[in-house]
């Protein structure tokens, strides 16, 4: 790890000021690891964990979560558990209890891919680390890589569970910067790689994540998060599905679906949602919607199984959510 200086931001404006010349440090669960590996080499760190960690209701029945709130705090919060159970479940599916106690919501949004070649500074080329140098994941171990939204430059996936639920819940990200504040829908917060896989989010230099806002949700009763992985716990997703829906007169009124583990960003399944609107719940309808969403999937040598896995997992989640016992 390179020598680094450490400072704490005590206010949002201070953080914005410091952000121009330093890297922001939340729980450190990803950044410190990447610094030790040499992937990240900041010379200055700004600890932003003293910024708002509040979880409070908005006037419109939604929820506002401070970027410094710990993942575990969000998952255990009564309002999250009762109104957005899929978010609780998604957070609880991620990492370990220790990591969730450390990781902040803002940091979770900013976490970087777990691509093995991205992490291997000494031995592998990576366009995300050094644009234009090449990608050794191509032709290498790509089992965890993307089937949707990737580019020839980069096929790495975004590893977050929490963000998958936030994408399905139409969350938005409040950002403070030198030029003032702005709000970005979470689904637009992360970029697809294109030819610049190093640019992972829309954050500009000096910008700081302030809060996450989740609008009021009618999905609490019928929502869930299912994660499929290589171990029963404490492993990144091969495929995950966050979904919530409402029924009216035996038909699906509205469905929200997002995939994790299949794309460079949390993958909101707009096509599948559209296909399901007004549909009578059935295994056939679910599989058809899943197939539509995955029609453009581009498998790599080692991850073609994800297409079938994603379809089946989505269908199973929807079957569960539309069951009579809900």
């Amino acid at each position: 790890m390179n020598p680094v200086s450490y400072q704490r931001a005590s206010s949002l404006s201070e953080a914005v000021q410091m952000a121009e010349t330093s890297r922001l440090l939340g729980g450190g669960t990803n950044l410190v690891d990447l610094m030790r590996k040499g992937v990240e080499q900041p010379s200055r760190l700004t600890d932003v964990t003293a910024l708002s960690a509040a979880i409070e209701e908005t006037g419109s029945g939604g929820l506002l979560i401070g970027a410094a709130a710990r993942n575990s705090t969000v998952a255990a919060h009564p309002l999250v558990r009762t109104r957005y159970p899929m978010l609780s479940r998604a957070i609880l599916a991620g990492a370990s209890a220790q990591v969730r106690n450390m990781a902040t919501v803002g940091g979770n949004l900013m976490q970087r891919t777990r691509c093995l070649y991205f992490a291997d500074v000494a031995g592998s080329r990576c366009n995300k680390r050094e644009p234009g140098t090449g990608c050794d994941a191509a032709g290498g171990f790509d089992r965890y890589h993307a089937i949707l939204g990737a580019s020839s430059a980069c096929t790495a996936t975004h590893p977050s569970d929490m963000c998958v639920a936030l994408a399905a819940l139409d969350a938005s990200v409040r950002i403070a910067g030198p030029a003032g504040e702005r709000t970005v829908p979470l689904v637009d917060f992360h970029r697809l790689p294109g030819d610049r896989p190093d640019l992972e989010t829309v954050l500009e230099l000096g910008e700081v994540i302030e809060t996450i806002e989740i609008p009021a949700s009618p999905f609490a009763a019928r929502s869930g998060y299912r994660k499929v992985r290589d171990r029963a716990s404490y492993a990144f997703a091969l495929v995950s599905v966050a979904s919530g829906l409402t029924l009216r007169e035996g038909r699906i009124d509205e469905a929200r679906i997002a995939f994790g583990g299949v794309a460079p960003k949390p993958w909101r399944a707009h096509r599948a949602e559209a296909a399901l609107r007004g549909a009578v719940p059935s295994a056939e309808a679910f599989m058809a919607a899943a197939a539509l969403e995955l029609a453009d999937a581009a498998p790599l040598a080692g991850n073609a199984f994800k297409i079938e896995l994603a379809k089946r997992t989505l269908s199973a989640v929807l079957t569960d959510l539309t069951g009579d016992d809900r």
């Binding site: 777990r114 093995l116 070649y117 291997d120 031995g123 592998s124 171990f141 171990r231 029963a232 716990s233």
Partner: peptide, 18 residues
């Protein structure tokens, strides 16, 4: 000839739930 998962995060030994 490079080992690509030199890490306990990426080499999966069983966890308690397994």
């Amino acid at each position: 000839g490079r080992i690509m998962n030199p890490s306990l995060a990426d080499y999966h030994i069983p966890v308690h739930l397994d």
